[in-house]
Amino acid sequence: MIRIDNVHKRFAGGGGAALAGVDLTIARGEVFGVIGRSGAGKSTLLRLLNGLEKPSEGHVRFDGIDVATLGPADLRQLRRRVGMIFQNFGLLSSATVAQNVALPLKIAGTPRAAIAARVAELLDRVGLHDHATKYPAQLSGGQKQRVGIARALATGPDVLLCDEATSALDPETTRDVLALIAALNRDLGLTIVLITHEMDVVRQGCDRVAVLKAGQVVETGPVADVVIDPQHAETRALLADAGDIGPGAHDFAGQVVHFTVHGAATTTPLISRIARETGADLTILDGRVGRLRDTAYAQLTLGIAGGNTAAALELLAQYGRVSR
């Protein structure tokens, strides 16, 4: 549905390139995450999709149409098919909840009577029908983002762009908002592109993910693959920030290794088995055991000492992936 083809973006006034040769394909109906640290270029990447920014080089195609070639009127038409929500919500503080949700419809020239009915329907969907006449300042962060979502859905878009939409929210509210976004994806078949710096958001909400570093995609794939078996150092660092991979340094006199296992092997009592067979002592220094969609997985930091350490490492490698 969306094809990003060798896109570069440089801003006037110098500095490095915000994007340096990005290629991505986003399929209809999927929840696609882009993760990276601040300054990685994810905001710029998202803004290319609805023409808020234009690429310096390369193409962004929407159902085959190059966004950069659209005239002002066609671009406005495209933007009505693409909803967007923001970290700071971007609501009009001078307008009520209902007026905020009505704004895209007014701009699109929808008849007044149709607007009222549509606004009521949208507020129902996000669970805010009791708050229609309140002003944004009277709402909690989670409620404000729900207004943002209702507003983004007003013109019946095919795509929803989420710009760090949960970064200003507490973990519980984040879960609620992600659940709402997942429901929209499921019920309306909405394609969702979500940028974040938090691996937890990707894990909870996305089907596929791209890891962005210094304007380049360093790793991309289904979330389960990327989280369980990260290939790039940046991905591992982002996972470490989320507590998925423990810190490297431990006070342990012996070999320290990171061990990742998934699928059926997760429930195999392998640590005691390896210890028995090799005479080595194994201890868990750090770790996380969980489930990603339907895949069980464990990511452990193990300390190994005594006995035949080399043989123990070899056996570990038969069950999962070992890295230093």
């Binding site: 808020l52 933007r79 967007m84 970290q87 971007g90 895209p104 701009i107």
Partner: peptide
Amino acid sequence: DRNTIEAVQAMGATTRD
């Protein structure tokens, strides 16, 4: 708020809107 301006542009608003 910068996000508010972007949000309104992202709705397909003209400069007049």
